[in-house]
Design a protein around this nucleic acid. Structure first.
Lengths: 337, 337
DNA sequence: CTGAAAGCGCTTACAG
DNA sequence: CTGAAAGCGCTTACAG
């Protein structure tokens, strides 16, 4: 591989001049041409390690997600990659599996200057490791400390689910959630839903499965089904469910609930309507898995990247960016005309 | 951040000795302890750029996939990350979107020694860039040149789909495929299927949509539906389809076909049975999207990583690793007892 | 605008 | 086993 030194020799200039051309710093027109020609002839490619050692930035960022099983995370990563790529950044991928140690490992990378910054969907209490001035943007998680966040309007989404059920004249609603209590979003979704129900005086209940960690792809099916069994024991009598509308904290949970109810001979959406959260599709631009409050995944990803690059460039960046959600029809709600 | 120099000073040894401790090279027991203590006290962390500049390996690899929309790619990446992670490697992620330029960019990274090697699911003709001796492992794609490959038994999978239909006493079969002709796997799946049909003298046809690129998540729905319309025009008469078993080159295609047939009032699997390829699930450990020939994704990923690390360590590595597939039941075939 | 030189933080022959 | 020193390929004040 050619080095700056060889390029400099061929172009008849100093290495400093080559470096300036490489970094888009002003040099004489003639020298610039000579250097560019030499780069072309030699097939020169910059050694990123040498640059990384000397310069402060590495043009590499990292993204931390619990898994890629969950389509939400997969799509988030896809759009994050694209946003970085279009800005000349490379991306390191960390699948944490919810393991705090692995999350911290990557934060360490940042301190080591191996990456310029990190975007994380983390569900552990790692805020203590995110030190002052470290470029870090969190999706969907409010830290107690000052950490920059991007999130969709979870509260508004819960409220919106309530309005959809109300339009369909539902009389008895239920909110079902999983996920640790650290995960503030599912709390907010529920609160928005509850507040709407209260404001309209619609009867509602809550099934809180907060002890079931849903971040590893909801793989604990048996426990979820067991919870359903216990809870619905006296809520489904003679093939009738006392609820006519159920809002869940996520689409996969909605899907499992739908399956469960159908096994109990409950017809969705005729007997019970279900609204999930996230807006996942079966395949690209395909049908929605369930009716859902959809998160604007591409926009969330871009906002995360924008904010992170702002932090890296030491710009002023808003602590919280909140993006709007939309209701999408996915066959588990009745069409209302 | 502390440097080796500071560690050396605190431990009262030379930087060379510190470096040896860092790299697990033999040093005196006492010095080793002193160095380790100093590292702990100072919270020293190695600067990977300095090491990368000097040493030949970076303990970083890259994976190239067309997208993460397709669950197959997402899961492949997830398992690749885990395999690398458990071996102390970091992973860079490249979403190519089928863009040859972006694929080549990453291969360039390898030449720049930014990554030690690459695992790629690529559908462009990039073999010319993969130079002799560059650690590169391709999933599911045979290059004309000498490139190391890992693949499932595509031919055997097609054959297996045939046997399943035969057991269900199907009389008239169809193979539907998308994907460029570069994509040799879908060809092999079809050939295995055809060869089985011929060997058993079962009637079969082929619907070849090879001009439709399916690598971006099958987003060209309209064209696919148009193809279906044209093809099935005289194959569905009076609500009867002349085929009773259809094998597709992928699960998403099977899903779309199922939707299409159901719109034509054909009942799946009673009237027509469908078998896809890949073995994708709705959610982790959840129901299969369709009946399918399942690829062993975790094993494929691990094999890719093993082979790549072998290449990096200049070991002898088999040019082709082929892993077996299995049939999975997903509601689009009739249970056979 | 340009060049000579120092230095980023490591690793690695080379002596001892 | 250990240390002194060169050097990996860049960038960046500093003079001119």
């Amino acid at each position: 591989m050619a080095t700056v030194k060889e390029v400099a020799e061929m172009a008849g200039v100093s290495v400093g001049t080559v470096s300036k051309v490489l970094n888009g710093i002003q040099v004489g027109e003639k020298n610039k041409e000579k250097v560019e020609q030499a780069i072309r002839v030699l097939g020169y490619e910059i050694n990123v390690y040498a640059r990384g050692l000397r310069a402060q930035n590495t043009y590499t960022a990292a993204v931390i997600v619990p898994n890629l099983y969950n389509q939400f995370f997969a799509l988030f990563v896809e759009y994050v990659e694209k946003a970085f790529s279009s800005r000349g950044y490379k991306l390191m991928l960390c699948i944490s599996s919810g393991d705090a140690k692995k999350e911290v490992d990557y934060i360490t990378l940042s301190r080591q200057n191996k990456v310029d910054g990190i975007i994380g969907i983390t569900y552990n209490d790692i805020e203590q490791y995110v030190t002052e001035g470290m470029p870090f943007v969190s999706l969907d998680r409010h830290f107690i400390q000052q950490v920059h966040c991007v999130t969709c309007d979870n509260y508004g989404g819960g409220w919106m689910a309530g309005t959809v059920f109300a339009k369909a004249h539902c009389k008895s609603l239920l909110y079902v959630r999983t996920g640790s209590d650290l995960s503030g979003e599912t709390m907010k979704r529920g609160r928005g839903f509850e507040d709407y129900c209260k404001s309209k005086q619609i009867r509602f209940e809550v099934l809180d499965m907060h002890d079931i960690d849903d971040q590893n792809g909801l793989d604990d099916h048996n426990r979820i089904y067991a919870c359903f069994d216990t809870f619905f024991k006296d809520k489904i009598v003679n093939g009738k469910c006392i609820f006519d509308g159920i809002f869940t904290s996520g689409d996969y949970l909605a899907l499992m609930l739908k399956e469960y109810l159908e096994k109990q001979e409950i017809v969705v959406p005729q007997d019970v309507q279900i609204i999930g959260f996230d807006g996942l599709q079966l395949y690209k631009d395909g049908p929605y898995m369930v009716s859902s409050i959809a998160q604007p995944i591409p926009k969330l990803a871009e906002k995360c990247v924008d904010n992170l690059l702002g932090l890296i460039q030491k710009e002023e960046v808003e602590m919280l960016s909140m993006l709007p959600v939309t209701f999408v029809e996915g066959g588990t709600t009745k069409a209302v005309y």
